[in-house]
C-alpha cells in the first residue's frame, strides 16, 4: 500500500486498535511476568503504551508524509514502515522514563517495554503488508483509507 496522509492516519489507528489490541491482550501478562504487578496493572501499562504510540503516531505520520514529498514516486517503501520503529520506540521510551506518560504509576523495565513494543510493531507491519488486503479489497487502492 502506498499511503496518502489520511490513509496513513486511518490505517495506523485501525491497526493499533485491532491487531495492536489483540497482541497486547495476548502477550502483556507474559511480558510483565515476575514484575509483581496485578493482571489489571499489566494491561493498564500495555494499553497506555499502545495509546501513546497511537497519539504520537498521528504526529509522526505528518512528518513521514512531509518526507515522502521528496520522493519522486510519492511512495513509502515497506522497509521504512519497519525501521521507523526505531525513532518511534525511542521517543516513547524516553517519555516513559521521564515519567510524563499519564496513567502509568508503576516502573516499567526496558526489556518488557521493548518486547511489547517490537512484537506489536512487527505484527502490525506484517499484517499491513499482506493479510490486510484480504478483507479490505479497496484499502490499497485508496492510499490506506478505510473510510
Amino acid at each position: 500500500m502506498v499511503p496518502t496522509l489520511f490513509g496513513r492516519i486511518q490505517t495506523r489507528i485501525f491497526l493499533l486498535a485491532t491487531v495492536g489490541v489483540l497482541i497486547t491482550l495476548a502477550i502483556m501478562p507474559l511480558v510483565l511476568a515476575g514484575s509483581g504487578l496485578s493482571l489489571g496493572e499489566r494491561y493498564m501499562v500495555g494499553f497506555v503504551i499502545l495509546a501513546t504510540v497511537t497519539v504520537l503516531g498521528v504526529v509522526w505520520e505528518f512528518i513521514y508524509h512531509f518526507l515522502m514529498q521528496f520522493r519522486w514516486e510519492k511512495d513509502w517503501p515497506s522497509l521504512f514502515g519497519l525501521i521507523t520503529l526505531l525513532n518511534e520506540g525511542v521517543l516513547v521510551w524516553i517519555l516513559l522514563s521521564a515519567e510524563v506518560v499519564p496513567f502509568i504509576e508503576v516502573e516499567v523495565g526496558a526489556i518488557p517495554f521493548w518486547i511489547h513494543f517490537l512484537v506489536v510493531w512487527i505484527g502490525i507491519w506484517l499484517f499491513a503488508n499482506g493479510p490486510m488486503r484480504v478483507p479490505f479489497i479497496r484499502w490499497r487502492f485508496r492510499g490506506g483509507r478505510l473510510l
Partner: peptide
C-alpha cells in the same frame, strides 16, 4: 529512471488521489 511506467503512487497513493 523509474521502477514502473508511472510513479508508484498512481496506483493507490497520493498521485492517484
Amino acid at each position: 529512471y523509474q521502477g514502473f511506467n508511472y510513479p508508484k503512487s498512481v496506483w493507490g497513493g497520493q498521485l492517484k488521489a
